[in-house]
Design a protein around this nucleic acid. Structure first.
Lengths: 210, 210
DNA sequence: CATGGAATCTAACTAGAATTCGAAACCATG
DNA sequence: CATGGTTTCGAATTCTAGTTAGATTCCATG
């Protein structure tokens, strides 16, 4: 019953088998983010999941299928979380405020489940083509969400008229994705990071030119 | 003699041996950026450098030493290039303009030698500790350069007084580093990318509040 | 407490890749 | 054209890690 608070993120693992599967997936994300695609050894994954390597084959058909799922799950969960946060906003929320909400949701979720995030970020271009398909489709859909947010804000006149929204969108996502590489909760709170990122979007770095 | 124009970037390869060594290094950066640390096979590196795997051992003591050098070279060259561009500025250049110059220099060089850039970016946390030392030291020195640029601009009142310059600096570097992952010269010129990044620094995304 | 499916384990097979070694090819110099 | 150092190569060695097979343990159910 104490689990209910956890269920927002992942779906609830019911059977014992499902829970073991989830444990293997988490372990794989952990190893994948630190060792890369080629360096992800099933023996290491198994050790983190507290079982023996061959056991993985009871839950996944192959090493590649396991890794494919990690790559996909990371992207899918961030996407779903941002969508949920946006849908929770009042209908009259301005396009710019929707962007700022998306920024906060992306950062919080990315840094919360950072093993999956860093795993898919660092390995996006290292994993063999075949394994990329599902994750790539998910990322494309997520990119469309951001593109729509920017287009709406531009149409509403809330962005500088001469802004290159394609490039700017990628710069913003890059700044956020990179945070998983350096952010340390002992130096800055997540709240501070979110605020600094939102301020960067709104005001840039220079003071308002009087 | 036609080589002289190339010499701005890397030091001039004089002897035949030095040129082969450089070719191996380039090939290693290429493979490392695409396959990761564990996935970088010497046979692949050799194929890209148009020679056989054992030949690599004539130029490098081991696979790890080769990879260590790739990781280090990328960071060192970007650092050196940015320093050179900054030193070429007139003494009276304002701190904010110095930041904008550093942005341009970083982006141009990073995207010029993007195999090295993406190699070190994607593998920074995948390479074993021992190999990180040299590259990490170089990156630390480079980070200090940026910290000083920001501190000077803040002291000169050219940045918003409430700006968190530590976080903002990392967001900016992240946005730029990430560009190596998505920038495609067929969609946007490098000039456009540089301008968009500089505008983001100066103005943010929203129009000046009247 | 017996039983059968679910879940996990141990042992063995196999392929791939770094590294070593000694031979061959290259090439500037006398 | 010979010669010796430089550079490259082919073959053999060794170790690592994915995968499979078969046995064993766990555990809910009757």
């Amino acid at each position: 019953m104490a689990e209910t608070t956890e269920r927002r993120a992942a779906e609830a693992p019911t059977s014992k088998s499902a829970r073991t599967r989830e444990r293997i997936l988490d372990a794989a994300a952990h190893v994948l983010s630190r060792k890369g695609y080629a360096g992800t050894r099933l023996a290491d994954v198994a050790a983190h999941a507290q079982l023996q390597a061959p056991t993985i084959y009871y839950h996944f058909a192959s090493r590649d299928e396991l890794i494919e799922e990690v790559m996909w799950v990371g992207a899918a969960r961030v996407h779903a979380h941002v969508v949920a946060e946006l849908e929770a906003l009042p209908a009259e929320t301005s396009p710019l405020d929707r962007i700022l909400t998306a920024v906060e949701a992306h950062l919080r979720y990315e840094l919360l489940i950072s093993d999956y995030t860093t795993a898919s970020i660092r390995n996006a271009n290292q994993v063999p083509e075949g394994l990329r398909a599902k994750a790539a489709a998910e990322e494309a859909a997520y990119a469309r969400l951001w593109r729509d947010l920017f287009t709406a804000a531009m149409d509403a006149g809330q962005l500088r008229a001469d802004l290159d929204i394609t490039v700017t969108r990628m710069l913003l996502l890059g700044a956020m994705n990179w945070a998983a590489e350096w952010w340390n909760p002992r130096h800055r709170t997540l709240d501070d990071l979110v605020r600094a990122t939102q301020d960067m979007v709104r005001y840039g770095m220079a003071p308002a030119t009087a």
